[in-house]
């Protein structure tokens, strides 16, 4: 039972990460391949502040948020103007840097020895895990509602327009870089907060937790579930993490020899699934929520106001030209 709650809590963390990636990649088109970097930074920041500096969980989390905002804003400023392939490589490099620093900075992170123990924030005897799970659940539900609202809002449409045709959106007077950097900072910070929340879940932190397969698991969930659909992230995590990590690893009657193979088999299937989905159904299980027609409609509305302005200009120009013509005619007559 305790293990089930742990697995479910972890699944909620993954859902959160996939939701944030949905905003970054699905809506804005920022291919963030450094998910595990932000997650790991948040996790280690909370761990270090709590264990090495003796702060309470809430204080540690507060400072971690400040740190994450600074880090992701700075990184965003450096990379968000780049083309997509470059962003992808730069974010991978960022996550590799975080993983390396967790090993090298032994005075802070204890290196490969590991850092622990991180206490649960809710100090109710026997109910700590349950309460923490409920807290995570509430957080994920709130984030899901916000994402559903975002999909219906002007901001959501602006994000999609920025993704599909940044020049066009910019030419209509939208500050697309600001949209990108604000959204990136916010979502990357939440990824880090989710990392901070998984610190008490894992209780003992080692650098080999910051592995690319976490980034990869989040990506496969999102791409499989449907990267442009508001519920795609959640569905994707249910299908991947729910199926493999909870159903098979916890409930399926597997022999101990086979159980060692399961995690590797899982990553093998993730890879195969990702290849299959991208080649045969690029939109994922759930199709996009915001249809291209909606965007073009929204944009043409923007265009038509622009055109109306231009039309007024044309009218006044025509008037002046008419007057000139009339004057010239008068001159000719005389």
């Amino acid at each position: 039972m305790a293990y089930l709650i742990f697995s479910l809590s972890l699944m909620l963390i993954y859902i959160g990460l996939a939701q944030m990636l949905h905003v970054q990649f699905g809506l804005l088109g920022i291919p963030n391949f450094g998910v595990v970097g932000f997650w790991g930074l948040g996790m280690y920041a909370v761990g270090v502040m709590q264990v090495q500096l003796g702060m309470s969980f809430v204080d540690a989390m507060g400072l971690t948020v400040v740190l994450l905002v600074i880090a992701s804003y700075f990184l965003g400023r450096l990379i968000l103007r780049l083309e997509r392939q470059a962003i992808l490589c730069a974010t991978i490099a960022f996550s590799a840097i975080i993983a390396l620093l967790a090993v090298t900075e032994k005075w802070m992170t204890m290196g490969v020895v590991g850092l622990g123990t991180i206490r649960h924030p809710f100090r109710v005897l026997g109910l700590e895990e349950i309460l923490f799970f409920l807290f995570l659940l509430a957080l994920i539900v709130v984030m899901q509602i916000l994402i559903l609202k975002l999909h219906k809002s002007r901001l959501g449409r602006l994000m999609v327009a920025t993704r599909d045709n940044e020049e066009l959106a910019a030419s209509l007077g939208k500050d697309t870089f600001q949209v990108k950097i604000v959204a990136f900072t916010l979502t990357a910070t939440i990824m880090g907060v989710l990392g901070g929340l998984s610190a008490p879940l894992n209780q003992f932190l080692t650098p080999n937790m910051i592995v690319p397969s976490i980034t990869f698991a989040v990506w496969i969930s999102l791409v499989l579930g449907g990267k442009e659909h508001a519920l795609g992230a959640m569905l994707g995590v249910f299908v991947t993490f729910g199926l493999f990590d909870i159903l098979i690893e916890t409930y399926a009657p597997v022999s101990p020899e086979f159980a060692v193979v399961v995690p590797n088999m899982k990553l093998f299937f993730y890879g195969a699934l990702l290849v299959g989905v991208l080649v045969f159904r690029p939109t994922g299980i759930l199709d996009r929520k915001i249809k291209p027609e909606d965007i073009s409609a929204a944009l043409s509305r923007g265009m038509s106001t622009g055109l109306a302005g231009a039309g007024r200009g044309m009218q006044s120009f025509a008037k002046v030209a008419d007057e000139k013509l009339i004057n010239r005619k008068k001159e000719d007559d005389q």
């Binding site: 291919p31 392939q85 193979v261 590797n264 088999m265 990553l267 093998f268 890879g271 290849v275």
Partner: peptide, 29 residues
């Protein structure tokens, strides 16, 4: 096949990462 279907470069990278995981953990298996 993916290039023929017109998959975008940034998605080709994701595809290649997926293939990379598949081959690597196939080898591990």
């Amino acid at each position: 096949p993916a290039l023929n279907r017109g998959v975008q470069p940034s998605e080709m990278i994701i595809l290649s990462v997926g293939l990379s995981f598949m081959l690597r953990y196939g080898l591990v298996l």
